[in-house]
Design a protein around this nucleic acid. Structure first.
Lengths: 240, 240
DNA sequence: CGCCTCATTGAAGAGTATCAAAAACTGTGG
DNA sequence: CCACAGTTTTTGATACTCTTCAATGAGGCG
């Protein structure tokens, strides 16, 4: 599950510290200092990275892969809060407030994580005040994302909720292909459903109808070709 | 709408700086320095304090009163994100990232606001690093609140959503009375509905049924006596 | 006291959840 | 490369919950 600094060659040349916004202001030698402190971990698809109630040993940075962070609703259904990708980090909250995590994090694919032990993290905060500001910025970005999610979930019609998640996917994971965007979907239908608070059948039906009308094209279960982004944006905002 | 430092006697003796967590580590003379910089504003019930798109001139701290922060959903329905009370603050996000606000804030009752101009706020950040940490903590608290909201809105049955908001009210605005809790409800039925993503009729019906079964007692439109908190907690978690 | 806003209640309807079954996909091993 | 098994997805039919629309009732402020 974890590997030393020397036999994890993928990490070696793809250092988290260089990819994370919060360290972007560090001088190169400072960055190397941080890099030396990193503990690397590897998780398989479906593996739990952290559990609700865990006390994290440090800041978790995603070096490679994608993960979902979720809680359970009253109905014991997963409610996905975030999708994190390369360069994203989590656990900062629990470091700052020294509290156990309040959600689960699970690898959606093979994922390499870099952990900065919290002792070192605090030193960093003291020595490089610019990091504080960066962290605040990231926290604010996270707040905005959550606010949008709530705004979206307050909307009753699932049309706009499905459309919005497709737009989010297009933006985060999409690659231009011809005059459309090809998306490598990180979630199953059920995962999508758990993200926007509906059932998997509803997601399925809506994707099918979007395919029928030519807006998207389902390629297997893991890829979606979005032909007309405009149509999604329209759908998203068509209700008065 | 705004008043000078000398004729706003309510503020005078109830200084925001003493009531806000982020300043709690400041020495008394530092605090007085901050206090001198404060601009005071007063808003009537129903008045908009900030609008989406506004560039705020500073950090907004609530000295007295209650406000709601909301966005609009696709259906043009208000989606309430936060209820802020005395001691809470908002606008920090937009200061840190220097971006326009992304929500509306409206006074739910007569409200006194203290504004710390952002120029002074930045100085504070530089001179008193402890404030950074406090702000991060507050941001984390806000994140946790939002995460809980999403978890709650992901739950399909409104039973648990209504129960949860009543519990939240009890905790924030409740006063023990005998063996129950008397709550001064800050929102109309429609407001409650806009907080949890249902219609006002649904809220009304659920409150009535809770009253029938003896869990709560509706006193006018603005007060609710909660007789058995336990019943709400049960209701909240009764689905498997 | 009267007006206006807010809240309640009822009946009908829309829409999504649920349940069930069939189809498609994914990955493994021959 | 193909067949197979397990998983995931799709699709259909039904049920149920919440919304919507409408009308009545209560509350609060001048």
């Amino acid at each position: 599950m974890s590997c030393s600094n020397h036999n994890c060659n993928k990490c070696q040349h793809n250092l988290c510290t260089h990819r994370v916004p919060i360290f972007s202001d560090l001088a190169s030698d400072e960055m190397n200092q941080v890099t030396d402190l990193i503990i690397r971990k590897k998780f398989d698809k479906g593996e739990l990275i952290v559990m609700e109630g865990n006390l994290l040993e440090g800041l978790y940075i995603i070096n490679q892969g994608r993960v979902k962070a979720f809680r359970y609703t009253q109905e014991a259904k997963e409610q996905i809060l975030y999708l994190f990708t390369e360069g994203d980090f989590f656990g900062e909250k629990n470091l700052l407030r020294k509290q156990p995590v309040t959600y689960y994090v699970e690898a959606l694919e093979e994922t390499n994580i870099c952990v900065i032990p919290h002792k070192n993290f605090y030193e960093l905060l003291r020595n490089a005040p610019s990091i504080s500001v960066k962290i605040m910025e990231q926290l604010c970005i996270r707040i905005e994302h959550l606010e949008s999610s709530i705004q979206n979930m307050g909307s009753k019609n699932m049309e706009s909720r499905v459309s919005l998640i497709l737009l989010e996917f297009a933006q985060k994971y999409g690659v231009r292909k011809g005059n459309g965007v090809l998306v490598d979907v990180p979630l199953t239908r059920e995962g999508i459903a758990n993200y926007i608070g509906v059932t998997r059948e509803t997601v399925s039906r809506k994707l099918s109808s979007l395919q029928e009308e030519g807006t998207i094209e389902l390629i297997g279960n893991k890829k979606i070709m979005i032909h007309t982004i405009k149509a999604l944006e329209l759908e998203f905002s068509k209700e008065i």
